[in-house]
Nucleic acid binder design. Structure first.
Lengths: 227, 227
DNA sequence: ACGAGATAGATTGTCGACAATGTACGCCTA
DNA sequence: TAGGCGTACATTGTCGACAATCTATCTCGT
């Protein structure tokens, strides 16, 4: 098997473990958006001291899941249309670049692996129609692979470590719905084809459109929720 | 006056202060690239406990100035041709995007301010020809303004807080040299003109070329040093 | 009654010491 | 002599307590 991405090595320290737990809790909405983070409370809840907890909070700030103000504490980030727009503007650009670089740097073996992954997703999708959670994970896996294929460590770090938890947060909390799911597969297929053909320009374009479509999808959900 | 950028608020905490000192020391090469970071030693040197120091180290890792391995310590990043290439690939793209967004979002007042800044740079450049340090600062100031003009907080954060210390490190340690300096002014002028005309596409293109030229310049220096 | 200032409580920032882990040296064996 | 093993040392991770700062409430004056 492969590891989702380099930074997600298995947690060796207490700070690592609590980070993963809080990340999950925020992304899935267990800790409400906008709510205040209390260090003493969390320390009790996870049964550790404030030192590793603060380490975890520093990393949570790094991936934009919380916002800290010196001497005043931290709050869980709040989802907003503007935030979504800013995030996806960046994502379109960065993942477009990742595609372009992947077309240059991915090995044939890596491309084959991604294709097998897509086939696997397709079959599992047919089995459980509509179960969007697995689709969610599968989609992210595809994007991860392409990003890693860029072989640009800074780009990988920004997308996988700093931006993707937020992306997941929007997707999980607003709920990805059905009709878009089947299209996504075709779009993934087209992207990996372009990469396989070493057509970076096309791969870039297709990825931008793919993400733009995803953004419109989430935007709708957000508006629907607002009304 | 204005503040260089939002994240560079005045340091309120001990961790903030020591962060700035170590950042400067690494960027300017006072702490040698590749050297090991010893927490106890730095704690003594800056006369504080390890708690705020570790906070600072976490932020240094965030801006890629050091690399940490759990239970094994941190090392100062090493400059390399590959690293430079990866960094500037990203920078071209991101600052290009920043220009495009700045063309949409900058107010006329902000554009006027940047133009005044450029005139100021031009006159001060004529006075002290060849003093690359001030040019260095001036160039960064121009880029900061444009990046802030994008009004995209994620983009601003990535460029100003996470990537620019590394950019400065390459520029300072490899030394920006003369002939390029005068051209940079013209290129800056062209970029702000495109932004003023609300021509995002052109501004994007010009910025990419501007940064590509800067990259080639530094690349030369690196090769020259390697031989 | 309303706003400014003071005070009490809680929270964050910092400290020094201990525990867990990694590193390096010397020793023993083949 | 070369290589693996074990021990001693140094470094990092974690803990509980103290100091500095902020927030909310209460009081007082106009």
């Amino acid at each position: 098997m492969h590891q989702p991405h380099p930074a997600l090595r298995q947690p060796v320290t207490a700070a690592d473990r609590v980070l993963l737990e809080i990340q999950r809790a925020i992304v899935e909405g267990d800790i409400a958006p906008g709510s205040k983070i209390s260090e003493p409370e969390l320390a009790r809840r996870f049964d550790l001291s404030r030192a590793p907890l603060r380490e975890a909070l520093a990393r949570l700030e790094r991936c934009h899941l919380i916002e800290r103000i010196p001497n005043a504490g931290a709050r869980v980030v709040r989802l907003s249309t503007n935030g979504l727009l800013a995030l996806y503007q960046l994502r379109e650009n960065l993942e477009g670049l990742a595609c372009k670089l992947a077309a240059e740097h991915m090995t044939d073996a890596e491309i084959t692996e991604v294709r097998q992954l897509l086939d696997q997703h397709l079959s599992s999708q047919r089995v459980r129609e509509g179960e969007s959670y697995y689709q969610e994970a599968g989609d992210l896996d595809f994007h991860y692979r392409v990003i890693l294929g860029s072989k640009n460590s800074y780009l990988i770090n920004i997308l996988c470590d700093e931006l993707y938890y937020l992306v997941r947060m929007y997707r999980v909390q607003l709920g990805m719905n059905g009709p878009r799911v089947s299209r996504a597969f075709d779009e993934h297929k087209a992207i990996i084809n372009a990469i396989a053909n070493r057509d970076g320009e096309l791969a870039d374009l297709l990825m931008r459109r793919h993400i733009a479509a995803s953004r419109r999808n989430i935007e709708q959900q957000l508006e629907q929720m607002g009304t």
